[in-house]
């Protein structure tokens, strides 16, 4: 079982990213459940989705049990720190230094990179997804990319970029 938290601000594409990961799992034949927050949060508030990949009934991630956190802002990563477990990884989109210890952190200006490479900040999330695929032993990266072939080309390129980033850093 892999458990994770995906977070950011309303409008940044948190829910899209979560749906992408779940669809990927579903198409790999792995059961997955995720939970989202809608409504008021959409107007610029904090958004977090929780996902469990494997045999389970709920998407509820307990404190200290997330294998990964993907955050589209530094603030939201900080707000969700209580979910990460000892050997988990936190992947953050930020251009600022991140003063933190006690857990593995991959922080990079993914949205800036995406704007430069793919012409849109919105692809920053896909870069982070690529990093997740690249650094996780539990996920068959090759197979994942094969399944994702039907997604828009630019998204695939952003994900591949992330996979390469994870392999080279």
């Amino acid at each position: 079982m892999i458990q994770g938290v995906i977070c950011g601000k309303g409008g940044q594409g948190v829910i899209t990213l979560n749906a992408m990961i779940g669809t990927l799992a579903a198409n790999m034949g792995i059961p997955a459940v995720s939970a989202e927050t809608h409504g008021m949060a959409m107007r610029g508030g904090s958004v977090a989705t929780y996902i469990k990949i494997g045999e389970c009934l709920s998407a509820a991630v307990a404190e200290g049990s997330a294998d990964f956190i993907i955050s589209l802002t530094k603030d939201e990563a900080l707000r969700n720190l209580n979910y990460i477990k000892k050997d988990g990884v936190i992947i953050v989109d930020t251009d600022e230094p991140f003063d933190i210890s006690g857990v593995k952190i991959i922080s990079l200006p993914a949205s800036d990179m995406a704007e430069k490479e793919f012409g849109g900040r919105i692809y920053g999330g896909q870069v982070l997804l690529g990093i997740l695929l690249g650094c996780f032993d539990g996920i068959d990266t090759e197979k994942a990319l094969e399944i994702l072939e039907t997604a828009p080309k630019i998204s695939i390129r952003a994900i591949e970029y992330g996979v390469r980033y994870a392999q080279t850093h």
Binding site: K9, G44, G45, S46, A62, E63, G64, S65, K74, D75, E76, L78, R79, L81, N82, I84, K85, K86, D87, G88, F98, D99, I100, S101, G102, V103
Partner: peptide, 15 residues
């Protein structure tokens, strides 16, 4: 729990 023991000087801005 297997909760990570994290130390950080940063605090999140409330949205």
């Amino acid at each position: 729990t297997d909760k990570a023991e994290i130390t950080t000087s940063e605090t999140p801005v409330q949205l």
